[in-house]
């Protein structure tokens, strides 16, 4: 099986800049990228509008959505990733089984006693299929009190994923990146365990939450990481030039 691609969006509010995140998630799903969303509900910041939005993003991105308090984040990030992985594998195996059996119920058409073999196959695939995951982290000012939990969650996820048999790479992107940029790459794809990312200094107070544009940036990264790097460096070069001219 080819490698699986996932995005995990961690946010505590509504998007307010740029493209519609639901449309963006749909676009990602078209390219076989699953979009999972974790909404943080701590001080009621997210609101019913926010909850509705994250749920729609996950639905459009064919992924899972969980609304949690920040102290449950560590566990949830790992569990959502694993469960999304299992679901994708189950879907793929089921599709093949449906063709073989000629019954649209797939594995559910088999008597419970006969499912063992297929379940074992799914287990093996979940463990072995290469995985690329991008963590897309909201660093708007309201996330301040949750940053420690997010850092722990990233560390924890990297510990779990690096124990898999299949290759697993994690990249971490923050949004908004700065006043000019929608996103900022904090860590490019790595398969190192115990990933420690310092997030507090990334906090942005501009009040912008460009969820849609951030998702589209991720798509670019997952479809061709080298290309993303090139674009990013060229932007930096341009800025160096601008700096130079101004001086």
């Amino acid at each position: 099986m080819a490698e699986l691609k996932q995005v995990l969006l961690i946010t505590d509010g509504c998007s307010n800049v740029g493209q519609d995140p639901v449309e963006a998630a749909k676009e990602l799903a078209k390219h076989n990228i699953t979009v999972n969303v974790i909404g943080i509900i701590d001080h009621g910041m997210i609101g019913s509008k926010g909850i509705a939005e994250v749920q729609s993003i996950a639905r459009a991105g064919k992924g899972l959505c969980e609304i949690v308090k920040s102290h449950d984040l560590t566990y949830t990030v790992q569990a959502v990733t694993q469960q999304a992985l299992n679901l994708t594998i189950e879907h793929v195996v089921n599709r093949q089984l449906t063709e073989m059996l000629g019954d649209k119920r797939g594995i559910q058409a088999l008597a419970p006693e006969n499912r063992g073999k297929f379940v074992e196959l799914m287990d093996d695939l979940s463990e072995q299929t290469p995985l690329k995951i991008v963590l897309l982290i909201d660093v708007s000012a309201s996330m301040r009190s949750k940053m420690k939990n997010v850092e722990d969650a990233i560390y924890n996820l990297s510990m779990s994923l690096q124990a898999r048999t299949g290759n697993s790479e994690i990249a971490v992107i923050a949004f908004p990146g700065s006043i000019q940029e929608h996103t900022k790459m904090l860590s490019n794809f790595t398969n190192e365990p115990s990933l420690v990312i310092e997030l507090c200094s990334m906090l942005q107070t501009s009040g912008a939450t460009p969820t849609g544009p951030a998702l589209l940036a991720v798509q670019q990264l997952l479809n061709d990481d080298n290309e993303y790097l090139r674009i990013n460096t060229s932007i930096n070069r341009e800025r160096e030039l601008v700096d130079y001219v101004v001086k």
Partner: peptide
Amino acid sequence: DSMQAIAAEYT
């Protein structure tokens, strides 16, 4: 609700 989890554990 996970068929996979229940069947795997039973097996």
